[in-house]
Amino acid sequence: MPNTVQEAKRYLDNAKEILREKAKKEDGFYQDKKYVKLAGHAAYTGVLVAFDGLLGAKGRGRKSIEWYLQEVGKMDKKALTSLHAAYETLHLSMGYDGNQSADISAAGLKLAESLINWVEIRTAAA
């Protein structure tokens, strides 16, 4: 299990590096949408990798955000709210829309980090 948390942190570090090195921040906005999208996708994938280590296999079919939300909702309502916010911020706003606001990206990365840490604490206690 700790391997999935380490892998998740690696994805998050990659997202931060993409924004820092390639997206070119000026006056609170990233100048290159492509790199915002890549960073959002990397950070969101990191969150899912962490949760995969905690939740395990689904059974049948591909996992969806609805499945993750349902499983996390059984464990912790606060984590459920954070996961939903991370989905909307990292996956939709950054990953799909390429929202260039540095504040949005910072909030998304902070959510990702807190969720990965939440999973790390849960797996350590198990």
Rank of each mutant, 00 (worst) to 15 (best):
Y11S: 11
Q6T: 13
G61Y: 15
G56V: 12
K22R: 14
R122T: 08
E7Y: 09
K78I: 13
Y30L: 07
G59I: 03
A126K: 14
Q31L: 12
V36T: 08
H91R: 09
L54W: 05
Q100I: 15
K74Q: 12
A43V: 02
K63L: 11
Q100R: 15
S64C: 15
L83V: 10
M75S: 04
R122V: 08
R20W: 09
K37H: 07
H91A: 10
M75P: 00
L109I: 08
I65V: 15
E17I: 01
R122Q: 10
W118R: 03
A85I: 00
S64E: 13
G56C: 09
I116V: 06
H91G: 09
L19R: 00
S101W: 09
G108R: 03
D76G: 09
A50C: 06
Y44I: 08
G28C: 05
D27M: 03
V119C: 04
S82Q: 11
K110G: 07
M75L: 15
T45C: 11
R10D: 12
K9P: 02
Y35D: 05
A15G: 07
Y30E: 03
I116W: 04
L111M: 05
E71K: 11
V119W: 02
D32E: 12
A43T: 09
K34W: 08
K37N: 06
R62L: 12
K25W: 00
Y11I: 02
A57H: 13
K25Q: 07
H41L: 13
L54S: 01
N117Q: 10
G108T: 10
N3C: 03
E7A: 15
N117R: 07
V36K: 04
A15R: 04
Q6K: 13
K34D: 02
F51P: 02
L109E: 00
I18C: 02
K37F: 04
E7G: 00
R20F: 10
V5K: 01
L83F: 06
M75R: 15
G59T: 08
N14S: 14
A107N: 10
E17N: 11
Y96R: 15
E113H: 05
M1W: 05
P2N: 14
L48I: 11
K37E: 10
A42H: 10
G108V: 07
T4A: 10
E17Y: 07
K9H: 04
G59M: 14
R10S: 13
R122W: 10
A15N: 06
V47D: 00
I104A: 09
L55H: 05
L109Y: 06
I121S: 06
G40N: 02
K78W: 11
A124Y: 11
G73P: 01
I121M: 13
V5W: 06
A50D: 03
F29G: 03
L90F: 08
A124K: 06
A125M: 13
L80H: 15
V47P: 04
A106Q: 12
A50N: 04
L54C: 12
A57S: 15
G95H: 06
A8P: 02
L19V: 01
I116S: 05
K34I: 04
A42Q: 10
T81D: 11
S82N: 08
